[in-house]
């Protein structure tokens, strides 16, 4: 009986679609601390970024302001940390909302239900800032394509993110987290990022669109 059960489980594995690879932990990095620092960065980024008005569904009659939505794609633990970081904080009178988002690939065949993908795309589109976990690297092209016209500030710690189509990429250098910004990517949208933020960033240029797939990092 147990053997049969195991066989069924193995078969299930064999027919399932391929999911994202988990990122290998790097030795020497205090992951919990790094996550908190990154979460604090995200909060700071919202303070230095201005989105076009139509990104906010403000209710003008009641003067109630719509929240700034930070989407975290592919890392629920991190979304919790961001949630704790921004809890009770506001930026420009707006509250901040954190949304944990899981990647859903486009339907492959006609029989696939397109609804989950549409819901996913809508949840992404509603974000003001989208943090893309490095576990999502293989879906990056698709994700960047999704956010293309949505005026979303994209942030990630995928290697060379700001050089391969993203806006803000975290980089760990000499034990510290700094960030790279691709101005061209931001200028393609109607998002405005404060010059103070840009001054602190390492400004990088977009590479040739076809980016290489990265190997394992030490």
């Amino acid at each position: 009986m147990t053997r049969l059960l195991l066989l069924i489980l193995v078969l299930l594995v064999a027919v399932s679609p391929l999911p994202a690879a988990g990122a290998e932990p790097s030795p020497g990095i205090d992951k919990a601390k790094a996550a908190k620092v990154k979460a604090a960065y995200l909060y700071n980024f919202t303070k230095f970024t201005k989105w076009p008005d139509e990104k906010f569904a403000d209710d003008r009659s009641s003067k109630r302001k719509a929240p700034i939505i930070i989407g975290v794609l592919g890392d629920q633990s991190f979304s919790r940390i961001v949630g704790k970081t921004i809890k009770g904080r506001t930026v420009g009178g707006r509250s901040i909302e954190v949304r944990n988002i899981t990647y859903i690939a486009p339907p492959k065949g006609r029989r696939d239900d397109p609804a989950p993908r549409e819901r996913f795309a809508k949840r992404v589109a509603e974000c003001h800032l989208l943090y893309i976990s490095d576990s999502q690297e293989e879906h990056l092209d698709d994700i960047l394509h999704l956010v293309d016209d949505e005026n979303i500030l994209t942030v990630s710690d995928i290697e060379e993110f700001a050089r391969i189509g993203g806006m803000v990429g975290f980089v760990t250098e000499q034990g510290k987290i700094i960030f790279e910004v691709c101005r061209d990517e931001i200028e393609d949208t109607r998002i405005k990022v404060s010059s103070k933020l840009l001054k602190l960033a390492r400004i990088v240029k977009r590479k040739d669109p076809a980016h290489k797939t990265r190997g394992a990092t030490p």
Binding site: A23, P25, I29, K31, A34, A35, S77, S133, D157, T172
Partner: peptide, 8 residues
Amino acid sequence: MCSSTHPP
């Protein structure tokens, strides 16, 4: 670098 953390 990796952002996935496992808080207790």
